[in-house]
Design a protein around this nucleic acid. Structure first.
Lengths: 237, 237
DNA sequence: GTATAGTTGATTGCATACAATTTAGCCACC
DNA sequence: GGTGGCTAAATTGTATGCAATCAACTATAC
């Protein structure tokens, strides 16, 4: 059975849960992540927690310091800028590829996603942030390159993390209009315009966000993790 | 002591050893990597081997299949092309950044590396391959963005792996001349030329390499690993 | 002779135990 | 009052053991 290769390890579920928690700002940058507290909460031993932490560290979402444990990453402002710069460069390639694969179905899918974004425009913040990130990931999927998708995801997540550090609330608004413009350019088949718009969009997001720098203390409030942990304990995805 | 944060875990050493072995074609794509054989050879328990394998899997150098263990990754030809395409796009950014930071020291450093490449031109293959890869990594270092460096390294390594699958021997020659041209363009401060040359260089590497596809059997010959393992056991870097 | 089921051996998945290191508290001493 | 070291608690690093899964082989039935 080939399908059995796809069975997710519990480590995958835990990593996903933690990743979501970080991206949805339940775990804020600088928070400590002790192995046994997490293990207890997720109902697994430290072994699996450790694996998950290593993985997230490889993705750049948490920092791991020898003998001192893990904490949610606190990228510097400079690192944040570098991430957005790199992201811009990579998503340029996404646009090129998507426009080469273009079909009506693709436009429909993108517009479907946009509709969700519009719907959630005034909903809770975490949801609109997540949808905004997922727009870019959807584009990467449509580019038809697993490799490209992998890196767009990872860097997109890291950018999302920097936003929770540096962005003021509600700085995500007006991104929707820019997404719409990008879709339109793609629909027209105008590659140059689409690339320029994407570049402009990402620069705008970064500019809107990467301003002030307020220091937050490194605390441990794992209680908010409970809903995420529950899903894992119950075996959900 | 801040320096103590930099003490490498044994996992790091093992990962590095395995990575080197893969890049130097001691471990060929498809080879199985059983945990306890490796543990025995490196003189550590399966725990650390497991961690290393997970890490290399995250980097895309090995594949991990549930309950079936690890093997050196065997990227498809399409994946190889996608990797080179992405690499081209990212190194474009490297060039932009390096040229902005340009100083005489940087040119000197690059020329120093080029000299090493020339010296090793007719030496054993693994060495010249390694040096060619390290040229690109040196450039990424000089770009002054740790984020960028991390991804250039990872993708560069993955490209190196694909070459061991698809490239015929000696297809690495003539890369040196292209490296020299890039350095010259950088020294002149001609960004456009440098970017074009880098693009051309990477496309040439990919084209020279990604041709035939001969299938290799998935065997286990870990004996060749011995020199790498010894370094780890002796605590070397 | 082929195919299927059962069984054994090898390998991975996960938890637990113990060692090593850091951190925090405390008391002495300056 | 503050600084130094000492001990104890907490936390991470690593090894090991057991359960679960997979692969190969044999035997038996058709």
């Amino acid at each position: 059975m080939k399908a059995s290769d796809k069975v997710k390890h519990r480590t995958d579920m835990i990593s996903s849960a933690l990743r979501s928690a970080i991206l949805e700002r339940v775990l804020m940058p600088g928070m400590k992540l002790p192995e046994d507290s997490l293990g207890e909460r997720f109902g697994v031993s430290r072994t699996l927690i450790r694996q998950s932490l290593e993985r997230l560290a490889a993705e750049g979402l948490i920092e791991l310091r020898r003998n001192k444990g893990a904490m949610v990453a606190k990228p510097s402002l400079e690192e944040a800028r570098d991430l957005f710069e790199l992201r811009t460069q990579i998503e340029d390639l996404v646009i090129s590829r998507v426009i080469k694969n273009m079909t009506p179905d693709i436009i429909a899918e993108l517009e479907g996603h946009l509709a969700k974004e519009v719907e959630a425009e005034h909903a809770a913040e975490p949801k609109s942030i997540r949808l905004a990130t997922e727009f870019h990931i959807l584009l990467a999927k449509l580019a038809g390159s697993p490799v490209l998708l992998r890196y767009v995801e990872e860097i997109g997540y890291r950018c999302g993390l920097t936003l929770s550090l540096y962005a003021r609330p509600h700085s995500t608004d007006c991104g929707i209009a820019e997404h719409r413009q990008i879709i339109e350019a793609l629909a027209t088949g105008d590659e140059d315009a689409a690339r320029k718009l994407m570049r402009h969009h990402l620069n705008a997001v970064a500019d809107r966000a990467l301003f002030t720098t307020d220091e937050g203390g490194p605390l441990v409030y794992l209680d908010a993790l409970e809903p995420y942990a529950k899903k894992v304990r119950d075996g959900g995805a």
